Simulated scan of single mutants.
Amino acid sequence: MKLYKISTLLCLCISASSWALSNDTEQPIYINSDNQQLDIQKNIVTFTGNVVLRQGSIDIRADKVVVTRPAGTEGKETIDAYGNPATFHQVMDDGKPIDGAARKMRYETATEFLKMTDEAILIQEGSEIQGKVISYKIDEQKLVAESGKKKRVTTILQPNQLNSNKK
């Protein structure tokens, strides 16, 4: 029963309704970098060197970002960010921030699917989830954290979140 309560509290702490500003994905994407390469035939743009990607309240920082638009179809972009680590910051509808980091992040705009790989960490109001892979299906409000071969998923819940969810 105690495990069930902790799992329920974790879901409440990191609920999808509090994840992002509702209109972030409807905003234009702005990317600044030191360099850019465009492959017109493959519809791939590669940004390298101090890459900053912004979309609404989303702020991604990486060493390299690759944006792919299959067959030139707008709204079905795949964004891959690489860094040591790549980081992201986003403001939720309630005004509270959420931060994450991983060596690789992949966001599929058409399916609203985010996958963070290699030393992935997600932080919200001091609580953390760490694992080899953290996947989040935004529209279904489902988060999955997976461990590596010799590690386990680690979750740290702050007492203030546990106490505020009891009300």
Rank of each mutant, 00 (worst) to 15 (best):
N23W: 08
D24Q: 05
P28R: 08
I29P: 01
N32K: 14
S33E: 04
S33N: 05
D34G: 08
D34N: 12
D34F: 00
D34I: 01
D34V: 10
Q37R: 12
Q37G: 08
Q41I: 15
N43S: 15
V45M: 12
V45A: 13
T46E: 01
T46C: 03
F47D: 07
F47N: 06
G49V: 06
G49M: 08
V52R: 04
Q55A: 09
S57T: 13
I58G: 02
I58Y: 00
D59K: 15
D59A: 12
I60S: 02
I60A: 06
R61V: 05
V67T: 01
T68Q: 12
R69S: 15
R69L: 14
E74R: 14
G75I: 13
G75K: 11
E77I: 06
T78F: 09
I79M: 01
D80L: 08
A81R: 08
N84F: 03
P85Q: 05
A86S: 08
A86V: 06
A86F: 05
T87D: 12
F88T: 02
F88Q: 11
F88E: 08
H89R: 14
Q90N: 09
V91E: 06
M92Y: 10
D94N: 15
D94L: 02
K96N: 12
P97S: 09
I98P: 09
G100C: 00
A102D: 10
A102W: 07
R106E: 11
Y107G: 01
Y107P: 01
T109E: 12
A110T: 08
T111G: 10
L114F: 04
L114I: 04
K115C: 03
K115E: 08
M116T: 08
M116E: 05
D118Q: 14
E119Q: 14
I121H: 04
L122Y: 00
E125R: 15
G131V: 03
K132T: 11
I134W: 07
I134R: 09
I134P: 10
Y136F: 03
Q141W: 04
K142Y: 09
L143F: 04
V144N: 09
A145R: 00
E146K: 11
S147G: 11
G148I: 06
G148C: 07
K149M: 12
K149R: 12
K150Y: 11
